[in-house]
Structures are given as structure tokens and as C-alpha cells.
Design a protein around this nucleic acid. Structure first.
Lengths: 169, 169
DNA sequence: ACGGACATGTAATAAGTTACATGATTAT
DNA sequence: ATAATCATGTAACTTATTACATGTCCGT
């Protein structure tokens, strides 16, 4: 059974006990949402696939059509395996880099406004990460991923600052 | 006509003159491959779509089934428009961050090997970027994207170095 | 003659996004 | 009563990856 990273994260969260798709969505958004996007559709699709594969089992339905899923022993093992098989490389997909790489085909100054706006967004993102530091003080794992975000955003802002005027206007 | 970033990059490259899918693939790999993955299949698919949309036109076939595509005026405009409509946010998708975020469900030390390996990869990537600096000396746009890579990798390595022993082993 | 680079594409699948449909329960 | 939230899911589409099929031309 080879899991994708998104499915594996769901298995991970289910270590804390049975959860519904809704719960998992909320948990994922809170715990990995800063660096791993996922949608409701995906969650329900992956849950169905995990169930077919026997890695989770549906528990007794609760209120409001609530359908809690429980980690099976096979699921627990698949999760551990996913981690030992090395996780893939980072992929950054940043359209702004494309725009800059193609900058020579543009009228001078055309990039400046776009760059300025992105710079602001990264400033806000960094501020938001910095503000979140206290809230992860007790959890070294959450602190580590947050620290990644802080360092990344800081590096991006330094990069913006170092861009030649020819590009950033 | 709303382009996706991959298609837009092809239009960008075609500013330098007609190119075949093969040429575009090689150009893209060389010029944006460090931060934008794309495959042959995509290139041919997007070219076909661009042609249907009238943004490129197929020139006279050359040797070996070679089918050069030329930028049309509409394509030139669509490219300029794509750039003015702001490029989307950066998305980082790094499974190792997931693994760390889920670290509390693992036996202690299980992450260490994975982390060590990734650290090496990033060291190599940084070295490769640093070695490439001379080759972009004349091109400020290429230099800017390379600088992004260097700063990013440096930040990631700093982050690795700062990870608590509890996580990195 | 033959291996390697050139060159185009299809097929199958996976992964991700957006929008929509449906309904239950809780709080005001 | 009614709005907000909880809850599940489908449909349609886009984007991306891997593998395969097919054939050409160049250099040695």
C-alpha cells in the first residue's frame, strides 16, 4: 500500500482517536494548514480510499450523519512505513519566480507593482507566524514546523530587499 | 483567455523566436527547472491548447517531424496580461514538514535518519546553486531567481541546524 | 550498422481545486 | 424562525506524473 502524503497525514491524526472527515479537515487545517493545503473533497476521497484499503474502519455513526473513522492496525503500520520510506523532496511552486525569470520579455517596471504586493503578503505572513510562536511553546514538533515558516519567510523578505532596483523598481 | 503559469512560461520563451515542444522543454528545464517542474506531456498538451486558443501558431515543419511554434500577437498580449494579473501565492509542499508535524506519533529517533538525509540533499542543492552563480552573472533575472534558491536553501539548512536534538536525533 | 539524441505524442492515473447539493442541529 | 455551523458527499475540471509507442536523423 503506498500512501500519498495527504492520506498519510490523515492516518497520523487518527492516532489521537477516531475522527470524522469534518474533524480531520479542521485538524489538518490547524496543524499542517500553513504548509500543506488540502480540501474537503480530498479528505473524503482519501478516507474512502483508506477504508477500501483497510487502513481505517468506519465506527458507529453519531449525531448528524457523523461518521467517525478509526485507525486499524494495518493503518498504523502503513503510517509508520510511509515515514520510513523517505518523504519526497520539497517542491516550491512560486509563480512570481516565473514572472521574474521571464522578466526580460517585459517592459521595464512592469514587475515592480507585482513584486511590491507580494512583498507585503510575505510581511504579513511572517507577522502571523511570529504571533503564533507562543501558542506552540509546548509542542516541539509544531514549533519546528513554525520555525521553518519563519525562516522561510524571513529569507524571502531578505531576498526581496536584495533585489536590484532594475527589477523591483 | 486565462493562462496557467506553465502555459504562460512557454509563451514567454517563445518571445525569443519559434521553438518546438522539444526546444521549449529543454529551455524550460534550463531556465526555470530549478523552481518549476514540468514534463514533456504537459508541454505538448499546453502547446496544443495554446494553438487552439490562437496564442501560438505552428510554423512550417522542419526536419524530423519538428514542429516549431510561433508566438502570435494575441499570444504576446495574453502573456503580458498574465503578468499583470497578479501571479498566485507561493506554495511549498514539503512532505518532510508533514513528517515532523506528525512526529509525536512516532517512536523517538525515527525521524532522525530521514532528517539527516534531507539535510544532505539541501547541502548539495545549495552547493549546486552556489556553483551556478558565475554562469548567470550577465543576467539579472536569472541571478534573482538563483539568489532566491540560495537564500531558501540557506534558510532551510539553518533550520536543520536549529532543530532540537529531540527531533533531529 | 547502430546507438544516442532528437522529436512528437497518447494513455492512464493521481492529485488538487471549485462549485454545488443536501440535510441535521444548535444558538439566538 | 432562522442563521450559523456541522456534516457528508458528488461533479466537473485542471494540473501533474509516469509510462509507453513511434519514428527520424546524426555521428562514429
Amino acid at each position: 500500500m503506498d500512501l500519498n502524503a495527504t492520506a498519510a497525514s490523515l492516518l497520523g491524526f487518527l492516532h489521537d482517536g477516531p475522527m470524522s472527515g469534518w474533524d480531520l479537515m479542521a485538524t489538518a487545517r490547524a496543524r499542517i494548514g500553513n504548509f500543506w493545503s488540502l480540501t474537503q473533497s480530498q479528505v473524503y476521497r482519501e478516507l474512502a480510499a483508506l477504508q477500501r484499503a483497510g487502513l481505517v474502519s468506519a465506527g458507529t455513526p453519531g449525531a448528524r450523519e457523523r461518521r467517525p473513522y478509526e485507525l486499524t492496525p494495518a493503518g498504523r503500520q502503513a503510517f509508520a512505513e510511509w515515514l520510513s520510506r523517505d518523504p519526497g523532496d520539497a517542491q516550491i511552486r512560486y509563480p512570481l519566480l516565473l514572472a521574474i525569470a521571464l522578466g526580460r520579455y517585459l517592459a521595464p517596471g512592469q514587475l515592480a507593482a507585482v513584486i511590491a504586493e507580494h512583498r507585503q503578503r510575505h510581511e504579513q505572513q511572517l507577522a502571523s507566524y511570529l504571533a503564533a510562536r507562543e501558542s506552540v511553546a509546548g509542542d516541539p514538533y509544531a514549533a519546528a514546523t513554525l520555525d521553518f515558516g519563519i525562516r522561510h519567510e524571513t529569507a524571502v523578505l531578505d531576498w526581496f530587499a536584495a533585489l536590484p532596483a532594475q527589477i523591483s523598481g
